[in-house]
Protein backbone atom coordinates (compact mmCIF):
# COMPACT_ATOMS: atom_id res chain seq x y z
CA UNK A 1 0.00 0.00 0.00
CA UNK A 2 1.12 3.57 -0.23
CA UNK A 3 0.54 6.91 1.42
CA UNK A 4 -1.54 9.28 -0.70
CA UNK A 5 0.87 11.43 -2.59
CA UNK A 6 -0.21 15.02 -3.19
CA UNK A 7 2.64 15.95 -5.50
CA UNK A 8 5.06 14.10 -7.67
CA UNK A 9 7.54 13.11 -4.98
CA UNK A 10 9.62 10.04 -5.67
CA UNK A 11 8.46 6.96 -3.81
CA UNK A 12 10.76 5.31 -1.32
CA UNK A 13 10.40 1.67 -0.35
CA UNK A 14 11.16 0.53 3.17
CA UNK A 15 10.25 -2.30 5.48
CA UNK A 16 8.42 -1.90 8.75
CA UNK A 17 8.00 -5.01 10.84
CA UNK A 18 8.75 -7.05 7.72
CA UNK A 19 5.99 -5.38 5.80
CA UNK A 20 7.00 -3.44 2.71
CA UNK A 21 5.63 0.05 2.10
CA UNK A 22 6.12 2.83 -0.45
CA UNK A 23 5.97 6.38 0.85
CA UNK A 24 6.86 9.70 -0.79
CA UNK A 25 10.47 10.78 -0.34
CA UNK A 26 10.72 13.20 2.57
CA UNK A 27 8.14 11.39 4.68
CA UNK A 28 9.01 10.47 8.24
CA UNK A 29 9.12 6.98 9.64
CA UNK A 30 6.10 7.94 11.76
CA UNK A 31 4.09 8.79 8.66
CA UNK A 32 5.03 5.45 7.18
CA UNK A 33 4.07 3.68 10.44
CA UNK A 34 0.71 5.41 10.50
CA UNK A 35 0.07 4.50 6.88
CA UNK A 36 0.48 0.89 7.94
CA UNK A 37 -1.73 1.49 11.00
CA UNK A 38 1.16 0.64 13.33
CA UNK A 39 0.14 2.00 16.73
CA UNK A 40 2.97 4.41 17.54
CA UNK A 41 2.77 6.50 20.72
CA UNK A 42 3.78 10.18 20.47
CA UNK A 43 3.86 12.99 23.01
CA UNK A 44 5.97 15.87 21.71
CA UNK A 45 4.88 15.38 18.11
CA UNK A 46 2.15 17.46 16.50
CA UNK A 47 1.33 17.65 12.79
CA UNK A 48 1.41 21.44 12.68
CA UNK A 49 4.73 21.96 14.54
CA UNK A 50 8.35 21.24 13.71
CA UNK A 51 9.31 17.89 15.31
CA UNK A 52 11.66 18.33 18.27
CA UNK A 53 11.85 14.59 19.05
CA UNK A 54 12.54 15.28 22.71
CA UNK A 55 10.20 12.82 24.38
CA UNK A 56 11.63 9.73 22.59
CA UNK A 57 8.47 7.68 23.11
CA UNK A 58 8.16 7.06 19.36
CA UNK A 59 11.61 5.47 18.99
CA UNK A 60 11.95 2.51 16.65
CA UNK A 61 14.78 0.12 15.88
CA UNK A 62 16.50 0.82 12.57
CA UNK A 63 18.73 -1.93 11.23
CA UNK A 64 22.33 -0.72 11.15
CA UNK A 65 21.83 2.07 13.67
CA UNK A 66 23.61 1.76 17.02
CA UNK A 67 20.85 3.56 18.85
CA UNK A 68 17.10 3.65 18.35
CA UNK A 69 15.84 6.47 16.15
CA UNK A 70 12.87 8.82 16.66
CA UNK A 71 10.12 7.93 14.20
CA UNK A 72 8.59 11.42 14.32
CA UNK A 73 11.56 13.23 12.79
CA UNK A 74 13.71 10.65 11.02
CA UNK A 75 13.12 10.81 7.31
CA UNK A 76 12.63 7.57 5.41
CA UNK A 77 15.41 6.22 3.21
CA UNK A 78 15.09 3.50 0.63
CA UNK A 79 15.83 0.05 2.00
CA UNK A 80 15.39 0.96 5.66
CA UNK A 81 14.47 -2.01 7.81
CA UNK A 82 12.55 -0.98 10.89
CA UNK A 83 11.21 -2.82 13.89
CA UNK A 84 8.56 -1.13 15.96
CA UNK A 85 7.94 -3.81 18.55
CA UNK A 86 11.34 -5.32 19.35
CA UNK A 87 12.52 -5.87 22.90
CA UNK A 88 14.68 -2.72 22.71
CA UNK A 89 11.80 -0.61 21.43
CA UNK A 90 9.41 -1.96 24.03
CA UNK A 91 11.88 -1.35 26.87
CA UNK A 92 12.63 2.20 25.79
CA UNK A 93 8.97 3.08 25.40
CA UNK A 94 8.14 1.47 28.71
CA UNK A 95 10.87 3.43 30.46
CA UNK A 96 10.05 6.77 28.83
CA UNK A 97 6.42 6.40 29.90
CA UNK A 98 7.52 5.28 33.34
CA UNK A 99 9.97 8.19 33.72
CA UNK A 100 7.23 10.67 32.85
CA UNK A 101 4.59 8.85 34.86
CA UNK A 102 6.80 8.96 37.95
CA UNK A 103 7.95 12.58 37.67
CA UNK A 104 5.04 14.46 36.08
CA UNK A 105 1.28 14.59 36.67
CA UNK A 106 0.15 12.85 33.48
CA UNK A 107 -3.47 12.40 34.57
CA UNK A 108 -4.84 14.49 31.70
CA UNK A 109 -2.64 13.11 28.90
CA UNK A 110 -4.84 11.30 26.46
CA UNK A 111 -3.93 7.67 25.77
CA UNK A 112 -1.17 7.72 28.40
CA UNK A 113 -2.53 5.06 30.71
CA UNK A 114 -3.34 2.76 27.81
CA UNK A 115 0.20 3.07 26.49
CA UNK A 116 1.63 2.49 29.98
CA UNK A 117 -0.42 -0.65 30.23
CA UNK A 118 0.58 -1.74 26.75
CA UNK A 119 4.28 -1.50 27.59
CA UNK A 120 4.06 -2.63 31.19
CA UNK A 121 5.22 0.63 32.78
CA UNK A 122 5.19 0.80 36.54
CA UNK A 123 5.98 4.32 37.81
CA UNK A 124 5.68 3.13 41.41
CA UNK A 125 9.05 1.39 41.14
CA UNK A 126 10.81 4.63 42.04
CA UNK A 127 9.08 5.02 45.36
CA UNK A 128 6.69 7.62 46.68
CA UNK A 129 6.77 11.05 45.13
CA UNK A 130 8.99 13.59 46.84
CA UNK A 131 7.37 16.64 48.39
CA UNK A 132 6.27 19.26 45.82
CA UNK A 133 8.57 22.24 45.39
CA UNK A 134 7.56 25.53 46.95
CA UNK A 135 6.42 28.28 44.60
CA UNK A 136 9.40 29.71 42.75
CA UNK A 137 11.91 27.09 43.83
CA UNK A 138 12.12 25.40 40.47
CA UNK A 139 12.22 28.79 38.74
CA UNK A 140 15.31 29.67 40.74
CA UNK A 141 17.17 26.37 40.26
CA UNK A 142 20.80 26.97 39.32
CA UNK A 143 22.28 24.95 36.46
CA UNK A 144 24.74 22.34 37.63
CA UNK A 145 23.87 22.57 41.33
CA UNK A 146 21.21 20.06 42.33
CA UNK A 147 20.60 18.91 45.87
CA UNK A 148 21.52 15.27 45.71
CA UNK A 149 18.57 13.11 46.63
CA UNK A 150 18.86 10.21 49.04
CA UNK A 151 16.69 8.23 46.64
CA UNK A 152 14.08 7.32 49.21
CA UNK A 153 11.47 9.34 47.34
CA UNK A 154 11.18 9.99 43.63
CA UNK A 155 11.98 13.50 42.43
CA UNK A 156 9.12 15.14 40.55
CA UNK A 157 8.37 18.46 38.93
CA UNK A 158 5.41 19.06 41.27
CA UNK A 159 4.90 22.71 42.21
CA UNK A 160 2.02 25.14 42.77
CA UNK A 161 -0.10 26.25 39.82
CA UNK A 162 0.82 29.65 38.36
CA UNK A 163 -2.24 31.87 38.15
CA UNK A 164 -1.25 35.38 37.12
CA UNK A 165 -3.88 36.42 34.59
CA UNK A 166 -7.60 35.92 33.95
CA UNK A 167 -7.40 33.89 30.77
CA UNK A 168 -5.28 30.84 31.40
CA UNK A 169 -3.30 29.02 34.07
CA UNK A 170 0.05 27.27 33.95
CA UNK A 171 0.34 24.08 35.97
CA UNK A 172 3.93 23.01 35.40
CA UNK A 173 3.42 19.96 37.61
CA UNK A 174 1.90 18.59 34.43
CA UNK A 175 4.68 19.73 32.08
CA UNK A 176 6.58 16.99 30.22
CA UNK A 177 8.79 19.59 28.51
CA UNK A 178 7.69 18.70 25.00
CA UNK A 179 8.70 22.18 23.73
CA UNK A 180 5.40 22.53 21.83
CA UNK A 181 4.30 25.72 23.63
CA UNK A 182 7.70 27.28 22.95
CA UNK A 183 7.42 26.41 19.28
CA UNK A 184 3.86 27.72 19.04
CA UNK A 185 4.84 30.96 20.80
CA UNK A 186 7.85 31.23 18.49
CA UNK A 187 8.40 30.73 14.79
CA UNK A 188 5.96 27.85 14.30
CA UNK A 189 2.94 30.05 14.88
CA UNK A 190 2.86 33.23 16.87
CA UNK A 191 6.34 34.80 16.66
CA UNK A 192 5.89 36.36 20.07
CA UNK A 193 8.70 34.53 21.90
CA UNK A 194 7.28 35.12 25.37
CA UNK A 195 8.52 31.78 26.69
CA UNK A 196 11.55 29.58 26.30
CA UNK A 197 13.12 26.62 28.01
CA UNK A 198 15.31 27.83 30.89
CA UNK A 199 17.64 26.01 33.26
CA UNK A 200 19.16 22.63 32.61
CA UNK A 201 18.60 18.93 33.15
CA UNK A 202 15.78 17.91 35.47
CA UNK A 203 15.51 21.57 36.50
CA UNK A 204 14.80 22.66 32.92
CA UNK A 205 11.47 24.47 32.75
CA UNK A 206 9.31 26.62 30.52
CA UNK A 207 9.88 30.19 31.59
CA UNK A 208 9.53 33.83 30.72
CA UNK A 209 12.61 35.99 31.18
CA UNK A 210 13.59 35.85 34.86
CA UNK A 211 10.32 33.95 35.38
CA UNK A 212 8.35 37.21 35.39
CA UNK A 213 4.56 36.85 35.49
CA UNK A 214 2.78 36.68 32.15
CA UNK A 215 1.35 40.23 32.29
CA UNK A 216 4.93 41.52 32.53
CA UNK A 217 6.12 39.28 29.71
CA UNK A 218 5.70 39.48 25.96
CA UNK A 219 2.63 37.21 26.11
CA UNK A 220 -0.21 38.38 23.86
CA UNK A 221 -2.70 35.78 25.14
CA UNK A 222 -3.27 34.15 21.77
CA UNK A 223 -3.60 30.88 23.66
CA UNK A 224 -1.81 28.93 20.94
CA UNK A 225 0.35 27.35 23.63
CA UNK A 226 -2.80 26.00 25.26
CA UNK A 227 -3.90 24.69 21.89
CA UNK A 228 -0.78 22.56 21.49
CA UNK A 229 -0.22 21.50 25.11
CA UNK A 230 -0.68 17.71 25.31
CA UNK A 231 -0.87 17.42 29.09
CA UNK A 232 -3.23 20.07 30.42
CA UNK A 233 -0.32 22.02 31.91
CA UNK A 234 -1.66 25.04 30.05
CA UNK A 235 -5.39 25.42 30.51
CA UNK A 236 -8.18 27.94 30.00
CA UNK A 237 -9.10 29.50 33.33
CA UNK A 238 -12.68 28.55 32.56
CA UNK A 239 -11.72 24.88 32.35
CA UNK A 240 -9.38 25.09 35.33
CA UNK A 241 -12.05 26.62 37.54
CA UNK A 242 -14.66 24.08 36.52
CA UNK A 243 -12.25 21.22 37.12
CA UNK A 244 -11.39 22.74 40.47
CA UNK A 245 -15.09 22.93 41.35
CA UNK A 246 -15.66 19.40 40.09
CA UNK A 247 -18.14 20.51 37.42
CA UNK A 248 -16.03 19.81 34.32
CA UNK A 249 -17.65 16.95 32.44
CA UNK A 250 -16.57 16.24 28.89
CA UNK A 251 -19.41 13.77 28.43
CA UNK A 252 -21.86 16.65 28.76
CA UNK A 253 -19.98 18.84 26.32
CA UNK A 254 -20.90 19.58 22.74
CA UNK A 255 -18.90 21.44 20.15
CA UNK A 256 -19.73 23.30 16.98
CA UNK A 257 -17.63 24.98 14.33
CA UNK A 258 -18.21 28.57 13.34
CA UNK A 259 -16.26 31.38 11.73
CA UNK A 260 -14.80 34.05 13.95
CA UNK A 261 -16.64 37.31 13.49
CA UNK A 262 -13.96 39.69 14.77
CA UNK A 263 -12.10 40.33 11.52
CA UNK A 264 -11.98 39.28 7.91
CA UNK A 265 -9.40 36.50 8.13
CA UNK A 266 -12.03 33.84 8.54
CA UNK A 267 -10.67 31.59 11.25
CA UNK A 268 -12.65 28.49 12.07
CA UNK A 269 -13.56 28.38 15.75
CA UNK A 270 -14.61 25.18 17.43
CA UNK A 271 -16.80 26.31 20.29
CA UNK A 272 -17.05 23.85 23.18
CA UNK A 273 -20.06 24.21 25.44
CA UNK A 274 -21.30 22.50 28.55
CA UNK A 275 -24.74 23.12 30.01
CA UNK A 276 -25.36 25.65 27.24
CA UNK A 277 -22.35 27.73 28.27
CA UNK A 278 -19.15 28.14 26.28
CA UNK A 279 -16.27 26.59 28.18
CA UNK A 280 -13.45 26.96 25.68
CA UNK A 281 -12.64 27.68 22.06
CA UNK A 282 -10.21 25.78 19.85
CA UNK A 283 -9.51 25.58 16.15
CA UNK A 284 -9.01 22.45 14.03
CA UNK A 285 -5.32 21.72 13.42
CA UNK A 286 -6.00 20.79 9.81
CA UNK A 287 -7.84 24.02 9.01
CA UNK A 288 -6.25 25.89 6.10
CA UNK A 289 -6.59 29.36 7.60
CA UNK A 290 -5.59 28.74 11.22
CA UNK A 291 -3.62 25.48 11.28
CA UNK A 292 -5.10 25.27 14.73
CA UNK A 293 -3.83 28.66 15.86
CA UNK A 294 -5.96 31.67 16.84
CA UNK A 295 -5.55 35.12 18.37
CA UNK A 296 -6.73 36.46 21.70
CA UNK A 297 -10.08 37.55 20.29
CA UNK A 298 -11.09 34.28 18.74
CA UNK A 299 -9.63 32.25 21.57
CA UNK A 300 -10.89 34.20 24.57
CA UNK A 301 -13.31 36.88 23.34
CA UNK A 302 -16.51 34.94 23.86
CA UNK A 303 -17.62 36.03 27.31
CA UNK A 304 -20.11 38.49 25.78
CA UNK A 305 -22.01 35.67 24.12
CA UNK A 306 -23.19 34.35 27.42
CA UNK A 307 -23.44 37.57 29.36
CA UNK A 308 -26.97 36.98 30.56
CA UNK A 309 -26.85 38.75 33.85
CA UNK A 310 -29.07 41.87 33.42
CA UNK A 311 -27.43 43.62 36.34
CA UNK A 312 -24.24 43.97 34.31
CA UNK A 313 -26.13 45.72 31.59
CA UNK A 314 -27.98 47.79 34.18
CA UNK A 315 -24.60 48.89 35.42
CA UNK A 316 -23.68 50.03 31.96
CA UNK A 317 -26.83 52.11 31.85
CA UNK A 318 -25.34 54.43 34.43
CA UNK A 319 -22.64 55.32 31.96
CA UNK A 320 -22.91 57.34 28.80
CA UNK A 321 -24.52 54.53 26.80
CA UNK A 322 -28.30 54.50 26.95
CA UNK A 323 -29.61 51.00 26.86
CA UNK A 324 -33.32 51.67 27.17
CA UNK A 325 -34.08 50.16 23.79
CA UNK A 326 -31.95 47.12 24.24
CA UNK A 327 -33.79 43.93 24.77
CA UNK A 328 -32.08 42.09 27.53
CA UNK A 329 -32.49 38.33 27.19
CA UNK A 330 -34.03 36.56 30.11
CA UNK A 331 -31.62 34.71 32.34
CA UNK A 332 -31.28 31.06 31.37
Amino acid sequence: MSVSDPGFARQVTLQIDERSIDVPEGSTILEACRALAVDTPTLCYLENLTPVNACRVCVVELEGSRTLVPACSRKVEGGMKIKTDSERVRTSRKMVLEFLGSSVDVSLVSDFSRQMQRYGSNPKRYGDAAKPALAGTRDGAVAGHHHASDGQTASTVAQPVKIDNELYVRDYSKCILCYKCVEACGTDAQNTFAIAVAGRGFDARISTEFAVELPDSACVYCGNCIGVCPTGALMFSSEYEMRDAGTWDENKQVSADTICSYCGVGCTLTVHAQDNKIVKVTSPADQDVTHGHLCIKGRFGWQFVQQRDPSVLDGLANGPVVLDDVEVPAPA
Binding site: A54, V96, F99, S102, A148, I176, R200, G201, A204
Partner: peptide, 19 residues
Protein backbone atom coordinates in the same frame (compact mmCIF):
# COMPACT_ATOMS: atom_id res chain seq x y z
CA UNK B 1 23.92 17.95 36.96
CA UNK B 2 25.16 17.92 33.40
CA UNK B 3 22.20 16.50 31.46
CA UNK B 4 20.88 19.28 29.24
CA UNK B 5 17.31 18.16 29.91
CA UNK B 6 16.17 18.05 26.32
CA UNK B 7 15.19 14.37 26.02
CA UNK B 8 13.24 12.33 28.55
CA UNK B 9 15.56 9.28 28.75
CA UNK B 10 18.51 11.40 29.92
CA UNK B 11 16.65 14.15 31.78
CA UNK B 12 14.77 11.75 34.03
CA UNK B 13 17.06 8.73 33.63
CA UNK B 14 20.07 10.52 35.12
CA UNK B 15 17.91 11.48 38.12
CA UNK B 16 16.54 7.97 38.61
CA UNK B 17 20.05 6.55 38.31
CA UNK B 18 21.38 8.98 40.93
CA UNK B 19 18.50 8.16 43.27
Amino acid sequence: DESCGQCVPCRVGTVRQQE
